[in-house]
Design a protein around this nucleic acid. Structure first.
Lengths: 130, 130
DNA sequence: CATTCTGTTATATATTATGTATAACAGACA
DNA sequence: TGTCTGTTATACATAATATATAACAGAATG
């Protein structure tokens, strides 16, 4: 797996795992329909508790990123749907307002900021399941 | 004051207050050198505890957003300095990678995203102290 | 000098979030 | 029958968040 967890980070472990899985899908490192490790396997790989992984998978399921079948386990949702819900957009709005304000005050120019966003977007490409 | 706190939010109160003060500076709603309410006053206005506000002011001081003088109280730092430290930039990098990945998967186009960033930046302008 | 306002510190308490530990359950599959 | 899945239950420890009450020390003002 491609996960790198910082155990001394202020960001909770489960949040780091969750973020990296979602990013993995966007980058195409995880294809749609691809199987993810079992809760026990991933927990063992990272060196964390089973329940922490289970929490991640559960949230990913609730948010539609993965589907879970008994026994077959967890896989990236083969039918990912765009979710521009009002709640999501409202949260994104607030988040970006705060981040850009701080970046502006810290001397990050609009051009720098946008260039960074563009480079990120250019690296994203959903990889279809085979 | 211009603060609007959502008490049912997952975002901690102190974090909301902190974000809104920083954003207030970027928007020019707070001028450099402007006095902020005392810890007790602001706590009373919002309807929260004195210590929660004190925590905010303390973090803002440590990060250089405000200066605090005994008795004269808290004011927006008249000599704000850009802080593009490696730590800050690394945190911003990780944060934006995660946000853009999720936005991409949720169907927010690069153009939409960038347009939003631009409009934010256009609204920022530090207001100098008089 | 006494009052009043500052931020600050100290204690204590309550609730929630995070993470771990151990165990067991039920479905699916070989 | 084992063995693998996710899932649930229970318990525990630690940290984060927020409140409550009280007191302290510096600075300004009457």
């Amino acid at each position: 797996m491609f996960l790198h967890i910082q155990f001394d980070s202020e960001t909770p472990i489960y949040q780091q795992v969750k973020n990296q899985i979602i990013r993995g899908i966007a980058l195409g490192e995880l294809s749609l329909g691809e199987s993810l490790p079992s809760v026990r396997q991933l927990a063992s790989d990272i060196g964390i508790n089973l329940h922490t992984v289970n929490k991640v998978y559960n949230q990913l399921k609730l948010e539609g990123w993965v589907v879970i079948h008994r026994k077959s386990g967890v896989m990236v949702n083969p039918d990912l749907k765009a979710n521009k819900s009002p709640d999501y957009l409202a949260g994104l709005d607030t988040l970006l307002k705060n981040i850009t304000a701080e970046a502006y005050l810290n001397g990050v120019s609009r051009e720098e900021f946008i260039d960074f966003i563009q480079k990120n977007y250019d690296s994203y490409k959903i990889r279809e399941e085979k």
